[in-house]
Amino acid sequence: MTFFINSVYFGMVLTFVAYEIGLFCKKKIRLAIVNPVVIASLIVGAVLVLGKIDYETYSESVQYITYFLTPATVCLAIPLYRQIHLLKKYPLAIMGGVFSGVLTAMVSIYFIALIFGLTHEQYITLLPKSITTAIGMGISEKMGGIVTLTVVAISVTGITGTLSAEFMLKLFRIKNPVAKGLAIGTCSHALGTTKAMEMGEVEGAMSSLAIVLTGILTVIGVSIFANFIG
């Protein structure tokens, strides 16, 4: 058993098999709530807990998978480039939409901090929760938040957005593909973008665009909102 756990391939095999199971479930059960990332994470988590395997051991083995997150995010420029005419057609709507989303994020976290009586440190931890992990970590670290918890908040946000997007957008009659994509990307970053890609190329491209715009606006937003709770 120790041999398996110590092999670099252990975590890789576990992750790939769990993800395949997740994809299989998604194909069999056509429900938005059945998401391969969530299923795979639950399977891997269960194996680690039941097998008493350290997260560090697992994380070291799968670092090669995580390494590809940057190149993959870079490649989000490709669907965005294919849909660049949309950005030229609706610049005002796109900027306005993302701006309102980022403002909503900041204001609602401010109220959560007031309601729960959060400390400055805890407040900063939550502020960058709707942006892609790497930027969120950077902001949290620089502004004095608890980085590991920011990562947890970002993951919870991403999963929530991914799982609820279809239902929420339908409920509020958001039908325009540009609006759908921007809404998903602004609230749930790259993880949500995987869902937007499934909906269509326009949705995926707009969601990728939202990651960039939300990231930049949040950097500015956090530096202003950070002062509101001392």
Binding site: T15, V37, A40, V62, I65, V151, I159
Partner: peptide, 8 residues
């Protein structure tokens, strides 16, 4: 699949 490790 790249989001599985951070989620775990």
């Amino acid at each position: 699949i790249m989001f599985v490790p951070p989620t775990v």
